Amino acid sequence: MFEPLKTIELSGKEYPIKCDLLVLEKIQDKYKTVGEFEDMITTWRIETDEDGNEVTHGKIPNARAVNDALYWMVCEGEYITADSENRQPHLFTREEVIRSVDIPIITLANQMHNEFYRCFKIKNVMTTQNQAEEKA
């Protein structure tokens, strides 16, 4: 029914990650809007030059926002995986997850942004609600 979880490899270990409504709720609670949060984890900004052309510039993401995204998405991925495997989830600490990071912050931020963005993509154009209406 659902697509397989993406994973992130940190210090030689694979962690399932998931950005879903529960993670978005945490983002809104801490960062007020998902738009502000997204701007904090992106590694680029778009500006308009003097000729009106859009120009993309690199930028350093906000470390706290990237760390929060990593922790929340790893925890959610673990809960979903544990549920599907009918076991208790490992209860990670924030420090445990963040201390396992062995990749550059730009790489990590891009991976977090990709997972964040996935939760806004339309995955199934034909929803079950639409299917039910068609059958009626």
Rank of each mutant, 00 (worst) to 15 (best):
Q129G: 00
S84T: 12
Q129L: 10
I103C: 01
T43Q: 08
D49G: 07
R64H: 10
F120A: 00
W44T: 14
E115Y: 11
G35A: 05
T33E: 01
E47I: 15
G58V: 10
N114I: 15
T48S: 09
N124G: 07
I105M: 06
F92I: 01
E76C: 06
E50S: 11
R64P: 02
K32W: 07
D68E: 02
E133F: 12
I98K: 03
K123S: 12
E85Y: 02
G52C: 05
R45V: 15
N124L: 10
K59W: 06
N86F: 04
R94P: 01
T42W: 07
Y71L: 05
P61T: 07
D39W: 14
F37R: 04
N110Q: 08
I80A: 09
N130F: 12
Q129Y: 13
K121A: 14
M40E: 07
M40R: 12
T128K: 10
W72Q: 03
C119Y: 13
V66E: 06
A65W: 10
Y117V: 13
F37D: 01
W72Y: 11
V55D: 00
G58L: 12
T48Q: 12
G58T: 14
M126E: 15
G77P: 06
S100G: 03
C75H: 03
R118F: 13
F92G: 00
D68T: 10
G35E: 08
D51C: 01
W44C: 04
D49S: 07
N110P: 00
R99Q: 14
T48D: 05
R94M: 06
A82P: 05
A132C: 02
N62W: 08
K123M: 09
M73G: 06
D83Y: 13
P89W: 02
H57E: 11
E54F: 13
A63V: 15
A82T: 04
I106A: 03
R45I: 15
F92K: 00
N53M: 06
R118G: 04
E115L: 03
T127H: 05
I106Y: 10
H113R: 10
T48H: 05
L108N: 02
G35C: 05
H113S: 05
R118C: 06
Y71I: 13
I105A: 00
K59S: 03
L108S: 04
Q111D: 11
N67S: 10
W72T: 04
E78L: 02
P89K: 04
N53W: 11
D51S: 07
G35P: 05
F120S: 02
E76A: 12
T93K: 01
N53A: 08
M73H: 09
A82H: 08
Y79N: 13
R99N: 15
E47Q: 09
I98P: 02
E54C: 10
G52Q: 09
Q88N: 14
V34G: 01
Q88R: 13
T93G: 04
H113C: 02
E85F: 04
N53Q: 12
G77S: 10
V74Y: 01
E36A: 13
N130M: 13
C75Y: 02
T33G: 01
N67V: 03
